[in-house]
Design a protein around this nucleic acid. Structure first.
Length: 267
DNA sequence: ATGCCTAACAGGGTTAGA
């Protein structure tokens, strides 16, 4: 079973690429980020025509996440808990959608995550929002882990976990994606018992999932690894392999991110 | 080391991204 995450940077601008990639790679579940679309304008029919069920959590202009799946989810939850204004500020941004899917061995829980960027890091709002969002994610992950079921939290984390996950660590030293507080918050997720699927299966250097559109970053392989599949022990035990669909970055009108895939045996 | 690209929304410029 192939479960993928892809920040497509605009589903309407990327619909041809998305259809091509779905046809080529035939993932079972896809976690999309930055659909940049309201739910009503998501190109649902074009995706359904390829045999996928579509669940979206969009908003106008930017952000927005979705779940595409070959089987319909049994349950869907929109929004990361803790954003309703009861305990902390209301979160107006569409960055989280979670589904429960039936598999031969039971049920798996899969979330599409678009973690806040947080830059500029000295902004009075943006970086604190990122850190608060990470703490909300930690709390929710902790609650999910108590279910002791396969859990896949997949998405654009906007976190460079380690120095070797970027081309030039010095260039990212003061960036919200790589600040010590950001990395510490990511380690707190790992310390709950979540496994970084790519790093668990591939110790290659220069393993990236994002290359900036600017300054010839792709041509120079000046990338960063910020798209992650984080797994509960029950999911990590079933992980067979991972792959990064680097070839899509060379396509016409590419997203600046490429799909990251985990292959699981849930038989 | 931001704004060298890109997308969306608007409407030919601004916001946001990482």
């Amino acid at each position: 079973m192939k479960i993928a995450t892809w920040n497509i940077n605009g589903v309407k601008a990327r619909i041809d690429s998305l259809r091509q990639w779905l046809t080529d790679s035939s993932p079972d579940i896809v976690c999309l980020q930055e659909i940049k679309s309201v739910d009503e304008n998501f190109p649902r029919l074009e995706i359904e025509a390829l045999g996928y069920h579509v669940e979206t959590h969009g908003q106008k202009g930017f952000n927005g996440v979705a779940l595409l799946s070959k089987t319909k989810p049994d349950e869907v939850m929109r929004g990361l808990p803790g954003g309703d204004g009861v305990d902390g500020p209301v979160d107006e941004q569409s960055r989280y959608i979670e589904g429960v899917f039936s598999v031969p061995s039971g049920a798996i829980r899969v979330a599409s995550i678009y973690l806040p960027n947080g830059n500029p890091a000295d902004d009075p709002v943006k970086y604190p929002y990122k850190l608060a969002w990470m703490e909300r994610l930690r709390k929710h992950a902790q609650a999910c882990l108590e279910l002791e079921e396969p859990l896949i939290l997949a998405g654009d984390y906007n976190v460079i976990p380690e120095p070797h996950d970027c081309f030039d660590p010095a260039a990212w030293a003061t960036d919200a994606l790589f600040l010590p507080q950001t990395r510490a918050a990511f380690r707190r997720l790992e310390n709950l018992g979540l496994t970084d699927a790519v790093r668990a299966t591939n110790d290659a250097i220069k393993l990236y999932s994002f290359w900036d559109y600017q300054a010839g970053a792709w041509q120079k392989n000046n990338g960063i690894r910020i798209d992650h599949l984080m797994l509960s022990p029950e999911a990590a035990d079933r992980l067979k392999s991972t792959s990064i669909e680097k070839h899509t970055r060379a396509w016409e009108k590419p997203s600046d991110h490429v799909p990251v895939i985990g292959v699981f045996d849930f038989a």
